[in-house]
Design a protein around this nucleic acid. Structure first.
Lengths: 246, 246
DNA sequence: CGTTTAATTGAAAGCAGTCAAACTATGTGG
DNA sequence: CCACATAGTTTGACTGCTTTCAATTAAACG
C-alpha cells in the first residue's frame, strides 16, 4: 500500500524496496477530521492509503478556501518535515486510512538514497505546478470552465493511481466543498454542475461522476494534463484504453 | 551575491561556503525577456541577483495569470532541476542579472550536503506556501483587500532580503501586470490602487510604494506573515526597526 | 516633439453572490 | 415502520463587484 507513495513519479528499481521497508503506523480518521491544524508542529509524515482529504485556509473574514485535494497515494506532510509550523489546515473529506512515517525516517532515507530524495523533490514540485494551474483556474476561468477543469484534473490524477473505473469516478465532496475549492458559492456551484449536466458534458449518480464525452469536456475546460508531469508512466496507455471503452 | 540564495531560510555555518563556491555564469536580460517558456527543457538553475521577474501561465482563451513574483535572491529553476518540461513561463519584469548554475552542480551539492538539500526543500516548500496564500487571495478576497495583501507580502519579502528602504519599496510592475497577478482587470486595478491611496493606506511616487500606516494596511489585508516561514531570522528586528522609524 | 505606452476616469453590461425557501436524501429514535 | 431531524441539493429573485468598451490625460522614449 505504501508503494503508491511514488508510483506516479519516476520509478526506481531497488530504491522502491527501501520505501516499502520504511517503518510506519497505520491510523484511521473519520470524515471531517482534522489531520493538521494551521500553526501546529507535525512530527510525522502521513501517506494517504484510502479516502480523500483536502488542504484549506481561512481568511480573517472567516472564508474558507480549499487549496488542494489529496487522493490516495499522496504524501500529505512533506511540508512539515522541512518547515516548522503548519501554514494551512489538512482535513479529511471521507473516512481515511493513512500510514504515518516519522520525520526522522523520511530524512534518513532521503539522505541515504539520492533517487528517493529526487522523487520527493519531484512530487513536491508537481504539487507546486498543480497549485499554479489552480491559481490560473481561480483567476482566469469562469465558473463553468473552472469546474470542468477541476473535474478533468481529478479524473487524470485518479486515473494515474488506478482509481477510475472505465468512465468516471467517485467524488466524495459536497457541493459546498467543491465550491470552496473553486472559489465560487455553493449555490452557484450547484447551478454550474447542473449546467454541465444539461449540456451532456458530465453525468452524475449521487456523487459519482462520469464523462460521456471526455474530449469535449477537456476542450471546454482548456485542459491539458502536461502540468501534472505524468510523462514517465502509463498515462497514455491508460487514457487511451479508457477512451476506447467509452 | 549568490549568498542571498538562501539567506531567508535556515542558515548553515560551513555549508554556506560550499554554496558560494558553486561555479556560476553571470548573465543579464532586458526587461520583458523570457527566461523560460512553457514546454522548454531548462539545463541550468538561475538565481536572481538583481531585478524582478514573474512566472505566468496562459489559458487557451489567451488570458494571462501571473502566478508568482520573484525578487532578488530567489532561485528560479529548482523546478527544472527535478522535472522535465517547464509548465509555465518565466519572464523578466525589469532588466535582470542572474547567476546560472548547472543542474549537475545543484544535484551534486544537494547530495553531498544534507543541510543544503534541506534548505532547498524548505525554499520550495515556502514557495508552495506562498502560492497557497495566493490562491486564498485570488478566491476569497475582494479587489481592495487582495491588492493590500499583495503589497504587504512583497513588503515583507523584500524586507527579508534587505531591499526595502525605511518605509516602502520600488514595485517595477505596470498596473496591467499587477492586475494579472491579482486576477483583476487593469482598469479595476487602477481604481483599487487609487482607492487605497485615497484612504491613506498607501502612498505612491511613480512606481515606488510606501505604507504610511503599516499596521492599518496589514489589518485591512488580513495579512499575517507566518506563511512566509521567516521565523528563524531577523524579520522581527527588521520590522520592529522599520515600524519605529515610521 | 511626435509617438508609444501607461495611467485614469466614465458609463453600461454581466457573472456570481447573497438571501430565502423548497425539496431530497439519509439517518435516528419511538 | 413511521415521524422527525439533519445535512445536502435545487431553484428563484435581487443585488453588487468587476468587466468591458470608450475616451482622455500623463509620462516615457528616440
Amino acid at each position: 500500500m505504501v508503494r503508491k507513495l511514488e508510483i506516479y513519479v519516476p520509478l526506481q528499481p531497488d530504491d522502491r524496496d527501501a520505501v516499502l521497508a520504511l517503518p510506519y503506523t497505520l491510523k484511521s480518521y473519520d470524515a471531517s477530521a482534522y489531520l493538521v491544524r494551521e500553526g501546529e508542529v507535525v512530527k510525522h509524515c502521513a501517506v494517504l492509503l484510502s479516502g480523500f482529504a483536502f488542504r484549506h485556509k481561512i481568511t480573517n473574514m472567516g472564508m474558507r478556501q480549499i487549496v488542494s485535494v489529496q487522493i490516495p497515494g499522496d504524501a500529505l506532510d512533506f511540508q512539515h518535515v522541512f518547515l516548522e509550523a503548519a501554514d494551512h489546515n489538512l482535513q479529511t473529506a471521507t473516512r481515511v486510512d493513512v500510514a504515518l512515517i516519522t520525520k526522522r525516517a523520511i530524512l534518513d532515507i532521503a539522505r541515504s538514497r539520492p533517487a528517493i530524495s529526487d522523487v520527493i523533490f519531484a512530487s513536491i514540485l508537481v504539487e507546486l505546478s498543480i497549485l499554479r494551474e489552480c491559481a490560473l483556474n481561480l483567476a482566469k476561468r469562469d465558473a463553468r470552465t473552472r469546474l470542468a477543469h477541476f473535474l478533468c484534473e481529478l479524473a487524470v490524477r485518479l486515473d494515474a493511481v488506478g482509481l477510475t473505473s472505465y468512465q468516471g469516478y467517485e467524488l466524495p465532496l459536497s457541493q459546498e466543498q467543491i465550491g470552496d475549492a473553486l472559489g465560487i458559492s455553493a449555490v452557484h456551484t450547484n447551478r454550474t454542475i447542473r449546467a454541465l449536466e444539461m449540456e451532456g458534458l458530465i453525468a452524475r449518480d449521487k456523487r459519482s461522476i462520469s464523462f460521456p464525452r471526455w474530449e469535449a469536456i477537456c476542450s471546454v475546460a482548456g485542459f491539458s494534463s502536461s502540468y501534472l508531469h505524468l510523462n514517465r508512466i502509463d498515462r497514455n496507455s491508460r487514457l487511451a484504453a479508457r477512451q476506447r471503452q467509452i
